[in-house]
Design a binder for these strands. Structure first.
Lengths: 340, 340
DNA sequence: CTGTTAGCGCGTTCAC
DNA sequence: GTGAACGCGCTAACAG
């Protein structure tokens, strides 16, 4: 490992000062054409690469942003991370991914602050998290697909209540009256809102709420399987499931089929998120789109705007996207036999 | 945004020099207990956070590694990225993810070098990529799930040829004789080796190679669908598919079922990678495990060892993991009717 | 148009 | 045990 080339070497070779080299490399106007060529030649022959760390120190800008999510292996986060990384790259930002449990959030944010990131994107957070106060950090923060109970925080998410309504409306229209609801922990705003939307929709259609038809808790195939199994062994079993994330919905599909029921003939299933695999004909999951592409794109662009000092969000700090229902093959009209 | 606290402020408040503050924070021995307490108190009241950028500049170490992959939204990469990020975090490294097309690889590596990363992990690369020469970069590079045609490059991957053998052996044992093969571009070492393994296995079992049964090319559902459709409309259609990635295998499942065939009764399918979703009972894909957990863990650990100056790889720079077959429900004995 | 001087925030000699 | 001085690699301010 030979010593790294610095501006000094380049300056010496080109017979100019370090400042001039710096100017050439940063495309300053008013530089003598020939000296510019000299410098460029020197850079090339020495294979000089500017040190971004030194640059960051003096400019107080690292061109790095942090992305904090719960679980990169979750398709929704993986798919949005892809968009975020790509968009950030277009604006010449790198992204440090932190796959952090929510409990560590404060610690992770502090670490990122020490690394002097220019901004942070958060994809999952508990609803009542107290410490996310914009003013407490020296960089902007944008939440996506989640929110906290504070008005002064930037966030972008789909209208989850409306999404739930679309799901229930679809199932109701198909004749379903007993609609089971499955979701992750209600401490997260996303699941909470989807649950509230479910409740409100039941009321809207004059259906009664049955607590036994609801599962909400930590993601675990075994737990879910047991719950579904229990439900399907009842005489008055539900005719359909509304699952508030596709990832869990696919597990529900598995659990249902393991009980020997046919989807959608015996049991209908609606998911939420529209992750890529849901459109695969082998699954062909009816689901609610959370507009992930628009969400991720807007989140990263807004963050960059905030970093560079101009906001694109208009009146409100909170943006709600409009969900749509995507009807595929896991839902159908209620089985005639069951109607009797 | 008030000015950031530096060592200077802390030193003043504690009534000591900046050097002493630095010593306290870096846990030097031989420091007067009381002055240490003073400094710590000052740090706390001022809310001082050491600037890792300044630290990186002087120590010439950023505690950051780069992870270059093709597509984070691909489950295999998402799942390994999760492990890599988590393990890196345990060793106090952050990871910058670059979702880079292979063509950009050199540019991305250069960018990472300018950012002074301590090391780089690469998850996908073309087989004959010429520029990955360890000596050309000032940081160590470890490849996982891929390799290049050079001996002096660290890499860790599963024994792909053996993996293919396990797949063919399994299908052969079930009575299948016409085995279609589907894979991504053969320019990638992983797909190439799996293909070679397929060929060698055919020969081993005395089966003839039929070029028409092979698809290899860029990942695209539509192309794949057309290919499968064409194959299944033939009179002498294959009775099974060996697909060299689970991600594509799931698409093949979709394509087959869209043609009205039952899996596995009419057509068997074997995948490769054992991504998480493959074990879901609704898919229950028979597949070859590429030992992704061990692969990712070893790759990041080896990289860190290389960074910190001690290698764990023993004789060879190249490690091969032992694949296993995981038999689930997409394969079964050949349909009796077809045997006639 | 170009060079000189100073300093970003910190860790590391070397004295005391 | 502790402090003063120097430098990591680069750019900003000020001359000229």
């Amino acid at each position: 490992m030979e010593k790294r080339i610095t501006v000094k070497e380049v300056a010496n070779l080109a017979g100019v000062s370090r400042t001039t080299v710096s100017r050439v490399l940063n495309n300053f106007p008013y530089i003598n054409h020939s000296t510019k060529q000299n410098v460029l030649a020197a850079v090339k022959t020495l294979g000089y690469e500017p040190d971004q760390i030194a640059r960051s120190l003096i400019k107080q800008k690292t061109r790095t942003i942090g992305l904090i999510i719960d679980d990169v292996s979750n398709s929704f986060f993986a798919e949005t991370a892809k968009i975020i990384i790509k968009t950030a790259r277009q604006y010449n930002y790198d992204v440090i991914i932190n796959d952090a449990k929510k409990e560590n959030l404060d610690k992770v944010l502090k670490k990122l602050q020490e690394k002097r990131v220019c901004g942070v994107l958060i994809g999952s957070i508990v609803r009542n998290h107290s410490n996310i106060i914009m003013e407490e950090f020296e960089f902007p923060i944008v939440l996506y697909n989640c929110d906290v109970d504070r008005s002064n925080v930037y966030s972008i998410m789909v209208d989850n209540k409306k999404g739930s309504f679309l799901a229930v409306e679809h199932l109701y229209g198909l004749g379903h009256r007993k609609i089971a609801f499955i979701s992750g922990p209600l401490t997260q705003s996303t699941f909470y809102e989807r649950f509230i939307g479910y409740l409100q929709s039941l009321e809207h259609f004059g259906l009664i709420y049955d607590q036994d038809l609801v599962y909400s808790g930590q993601y675990s195939y075994d737990h879910l399987f047991e719950f579904v199994k229990g439900l399907l062994s009842r005489i008055d079993k539900p005719t359909c499931f509304f699952v508030s994330s596709d990832q869990m919905a696919i597990d529900v599909l598995g659990s249902i089929s393991q009980q020997g029921f046919d989807i959608p003939k015996d049991i209908s299933v609606v998911g939420f998120d529209d992750i890529n695999i849901s459109s695969n004909p082998y699954l062909s999951l009816t689901t609610i789109s959370n507009e992930k592409t628009e969400m991720a794109t807007n989140a990263i662009k807004e963050l960059i705007n905030l970093i560079e000092g101009q906001s694109v969000f208009t009146k409100s700090l909170k943006i709600k996207l409009d969900p749509t229902i995507i009807v595929r093959n896991t839902t159908c009209g209620i089985n005639a036999q069951d109607s009797f």
